[in-house]
């Protein structure tokens, strides 16, 4: 066992964190609205040293054949090597793909976007909603940071004008059809305790993590477990903790 791990786990056993926080405390959360003028909506979220910018772009395209009158949501992630010595250049790998898919499911499954309102001509043309992230610094807990920034960016999104042929990005007026505010909170098992918002150092030593995306009404919209096993009791606790922390985060918006 290395010294760092020993220290982190001893802190948790004593009910606190290596950086002095409590087990259920987030680091300082800062939200900046619309830093990107060229996006239809954007947000920069800092959680401790983690720093991400999410931009929402709107374009038009064909609907999926099985959903002819629904707009299309595309959530991507790249672990940009600018943000951490551990990220390498190249096409997205497991970590980036899981990050994008967990954020995607939170937004999609919570029904937070009224996709019917994004239909232009059924079977032919719908709005495509692109949610992309630029990670500036990876300081741990990327899923929660991306998820919070994605929601904030969607809340900030305004629809550009469309005349049937061309999108006029200089005129962004109409509101974006957002119906819910899903928030992801990742609970980590560190030693035998459950903690939220792991730092980069803590993330290296967690046994397991569970990301719980909750809606405004407290319902769960998406789950994703990573790492090792969890007992049912731990899962119950993790969900309750996520609901509680999700409410706190939502109150920041």
């Amino acid at each position: 066992m290395n010294i760092q791990k020993e220290f982190i786990l001893r802190c948790v056993e004593e009910g606190k964190r290596a950086d002095g926080r409590g087990l259920e405390d987030f680091r300082k959360v800062e939200i900046e609205h619309n830093p990107i003028e060229n996006a239809e909506g954007s947000a920069r979220v800092k959680i401790g040293e983690t720093d991400v910018i999410v931009g929402v772009k709107l374009g038009t395209g064909e609907p999926f054949p099985d959903k002819p009158d629904d707009g299309v949501l595309i959530v991507t992630a790249e672990l940009s090597p600018i943000a951490s010595p551990k990220f390498e250049p190249g096409p997205p790998r497991e970590g980036a793909i899981e990050l994008a898919r967990v954020v995607d499911r939170g937004i999609r499954e919570s029904g937070s976007i009224d996709t019917k309102k994004l239909c232009i001509t059924p079977k032919e043309k719908v709005w495509c909603v692109f949610v992309d992230v630029q990670i500036i610094n990876h300081g741990g807990n990327l899923i929660d940071a991306y998820s919070l920034a994605a929601l904030t960016a969607l809340m900030n999104t305004k629809m550009p004008e469309y005349d049937g042929e061309k999108i006029d990005y200089s005129k962004k007026t109409k509101p974006f059809p957002l119906k819910d505010k899903p928030i992801a909170v990742t609970v980590c098992k560190l030693g035998n305790s459950l903690v939220v918002d792991p730092s980069l150092e803590e993330e290296e030593h967690i046994e397991a993590r569970l990301t719980v995306t909750t809606k405004e009404n407290g319902n769960v919209a998406a789950l994703q477990k990573g790492g090792g096993p969890l007992s049912l009791e731990e899962i119950e606790k993790a969900i309750a903790l996520s609901v509680k922390k999700g409410k706190e985060l939502r109150s920041l918006l």
Binding site: N38, S42, T76, E78, P81, F130, D132, Q134
Partner: peptide
């Protein structure tokens, strides 16, 4: 050197990669 544009950096979205 690796130069990359964020997908949301321009009016028309830039394809990642």
């Amino acid at each position: 050197c690796i130069y990359t544009m964020a997908p949301f950096s321009t009016e028309d979205r830039v394809r990642p990669g």
